[in-house]
Design a protein around this nucleic acid. Structure first.
Lengths: 195, 195, 195, 195
DNA sequence: GATGAATGAGCATTCATTCAT
DNA sequence: GATGAATGAATGCTCATTCAT
């Protein structure tokens, strides 16, 4: 669920409508006119907030990214062993994507939309900085096996995406979901950690 | 490199051009007219082979999928322990995607192109049947931990995609690439296998 | 430089901004929003002064026309021979257009903007009444050759426009400019006058 | 009447329709959709011939310019005194503009459409080269008074435009029209020529 | 009067698809 | 089969104008 501070009601409605429609019909399958209709605004209103449709898409990405990051910052333990903090990151990342499926799915779509590559590569990396910091820490402290950093990062990320895809298809009750995520984390730990 | 049996030269040129352009500009960023130009045919010719652009995309997907499957069938040991055969699947899957980056990237794009969902879900599952058969075997024989089958499948697949992404960015020499893939396989094994 | 009596500061700013932008980008190339920005007012403010953009354009035309007329009335000798007064009209008309290039250019643009035809034909004729009066006088007194009045009027006007165009491209010092205008007037006199 | 060699029927219809509508409603007052309707083609057809509306406008200008030039070349005496040839240029220029009022009016509109300036300045000069060549000759041979070349050019051109404007309003029979143009030419001669 | 967010009609342009040759 | 001119529905975007504050 999107909810943010200095964003006008109309703007919010536009972002929400965009998210819903992009996820359902894709970027190109969603005319700006439909977004406006879904948002309950006039067509032109979109363009008072965003110069172009691509700008809207990019802004939505930024928006979602921030939601995600805010959620992680709020939930991940600031203290504890590396393993504990890693577990938190893993757990809450998967949890957030399950609780915000549209947002997560949109993110994936975005990263595969070729013509937006340039504007965002930097943005994508930044988005992952929370994760990457702790992988680096684990690597530096020899908690992780001596593998290339990027390999570790990619494998860990993929793991989360895999869990999201798995869990978002079946419909497990919360407690079981929790258990499965933790099971996956243990798997990841066995995969990457020393001993 | 695409090369197949009963496909006319023009058709082949069209598929090749499509692949190149789709990967570079995305489906919607690639007009059929440009495909024709790149393929060295008249615009209309595309539509003597494919009723619609979406048909072309679907056919290309089918085409690539078959290439991949043929490659696996040719290379994966038919005999050996489950672990050996799993390793082969893992290894050659990653290897193929590295040797056919455009093809693999196209596949990923395709799976995130929402408006093509219906036509293909079934197709995608079928594509993965080779992998899934052996995961099932490993699960049935208690070689894998007792986790939901789909979870295992997703985690294993994600691992390969993660390795592709990692390796396709750095530029490692063949021998090192080979070593890294095997390292990743060992990680996956620790993650999923019993003991 | 525009400067007039009962016109509010905002209104004046709007007219000035319009003039500048219309001359540079044309009527259709100048959005009212840009005019407002250039004038330092809110977009809506324009419409408290002018019901429509076309009204603004027409008002600006009227405004400029009056500037020109005032200038002529102030400078043209009220007495003297027909030739002397004609020379003044010719001279000061060209001079004004050189000293007020934007204004003059705007006038020309206006007269070729087809969709404003109706509103202004009458206005344009009125604008030229000072000139026309003296051509009529010259014709009535047989100072001019016996040609159709409209022909004389058009030829004389064209002459001034031609001189403006010529002088506004080169950059002659004032004294030379003056001499060239007088030379042109002599030419016009030879063209139109008896003997 | 436009009529040219290697121009397809549809293209011709588009140019004709454009000319008619531009002259009546102006560039911005004429939607491309109306042009298509008037030309009896589909809307999209315009864009198979011209990449943009501005391209169409520029092409139309080029087209009309060529018509004019062809007409002059066909009619102006190649031999004779400077005066005779000047008279021809003057006479046939005015005559053509009267016989092709839409074309001529379009030309004038075009030259005042600010945002097309860049594309065409060069083109406009070229258009006038036939005239300019003979003015230069007259100046070099001291047939004209020793005035700046550009001044002569502008004054002569203005004269023709003035005559067009005058004649296109009244409705004189051909013989009288002819006489009046010649009268105007004599005036111009008195204005510019030595003695 | 002044503001500027909101409106929606209007427009240029794109592009998959058709079809006569 | 191959061609490419023609089609017209669809779409992103602009901008004059309105109106609640």
């Amino acid at each position: 669920m999107i909810a943010h501070s200095n964003i006008s009601e109309k703007n919010e409605a536009i972002l929400q409508a965009s998210l819903r429609l992009f996820v359902e019909y894709g970027f190109h399958g969603t005319p700006t006119s439909k977004i406006a209709a879904e948002a309950g605004t006039a067509h032109g209103t979109i363009f008072t907030y965003y110069k172009t449709k691509d700008d809207l898409i990019a802004a939505l990405y930024e928006y979602v990214k921030n939601e995600f990051r805010d959620f992680l910052v709020k939930n991940v333990r600031g203290e504890g062993t590396i393993k504990e903090r890693l577990r938190d990151i893993f757990f809450y990342s998967v949890q957030w994507s399950l609780d915000n499926r549209k947002e997560f799915y949109f993110t994936q779509q975005f990263q595969y939309s070729t013509h937006l590559k340039k504007a965002s590569t930097e943005s994508i990396v930044k988005e992952k900085s929370l994760h990457r910091a702790i992988y680096q820490e684990a690597l530096d402290n020899k908690v992780f096996r001596p593998l290339p950093f990027e390999m570790i990062a990619e494998l860990a990320m993929s793991q989360m995406i895999g869990m999201f895809q798995f869990l978002s298809e079946g419909n497990y009750p919360p407690s079981e979901t929790k258990a499965l995520i933790d099971e996956a984390f243990k798997g990841m730990w066995r995969m990457l950690a020393v001993v």
